[in-house]
């Protein structure tokens, strides 16, 4: 079983590389029982969508 700390690392790295099959399985097993890490992962994904929005200049309410 992966620790929360290791899961944290994978939740970031999955945005930069394809995780191996065993990493994906272990990640899924951990997330199934850990709300804190599930939140962490959701928040990593939210950051990605926020940065995408920001880099298009779409900061704040639609202004054009």
């Amino acid at each position: 079983m992966l620790s929360c700390k290791e899961v944290n690392r994978l939740c970031s790295e999955e945005q930069d590389r394809k995780l191996s099959l065993s990493e994906r399985i272990n990640l899924r097993m951990h997330l199934a029982i850990c709300k804190a890490c599930t939140n962490f992962r959701d928040q990593m994904r939210f950051l990605r969508s926020a940065t995408r929005r920001y880099r298009e200049g779409q900061r704040g309410p639609a202004d054009d």
Binding site: S3, C4, K5, E6, K35, A36, C37, N39, F40, D42, Q43, F46, S49, A50, R53, R59, G60, P61, A62
Partner: peptide
Amino acid sequence: GHWNPEDRPPTWADPESSLSQQ
């Protein structure tokens, strides 16, 4: 390697709606 209780990431309420706030 487990979260300290006080450091566990909480649920963020409706983060998507934040994106439209200046």
